[in-house]
Amino acid sequence: MNVTRKRRRKVEIPTASTGDIAFLLIVFFMATTKFDVKEGVKVQLTKAVDQAQQKASEIKLTENEMTRIDIMQNGQLSFNGATPVTLSDTDLDKKILEKIEMRDALNKRETDPTLRSTKMLFLVKTDPEANYEYMVRVVERLVTHRDRALISISTSI
């Protein structure tokens, strides 16, 4: 009897698409990964001084040299002890610029050449109960004028 041998079928798993699948996975992870970027407003705090040292080196500054910005508990701002008011970012900018320009005008009239480059010092004093965001808002606006003004964040109690 003539027995025909069964021909073995070639069985193969198709792997042509494996590369596509893997690359699609990579692209998916690349697109969905969220990197933790650190960005914010940079400031330098003043040096720590002990009270005795502070008393010895105390100098009185007038409104021509320093502007004190008080941040109230509700976010209102007071410039040099004036009545606190609610200021928008634009108004705050205007107020800061006004003080800087006043200092610049005084510098121009200054007879002593060493004092002609005096920068306006802004002292930011925040109410302990005020929200942290109120302080950041003022500091961020002051940083805009960093080249023309000095910023000091008060940490004294």
Partner: peptide
């Protein structure tokens, strides 16, 4: 952003004592 400034101030005072004064307020 709603943290009372007092807490932030206390930490800043410690940073001044440690002389690590370059700070960044993340926004």
């Amino acid at each position: 952003r709603e943290t009372p400034y007092q807490t932030v101030r206390d930490v800043m005072m410690r940073l001044q004592d440690a002389d690590t004064r370059n700070v960044v307020f993340e926004v």
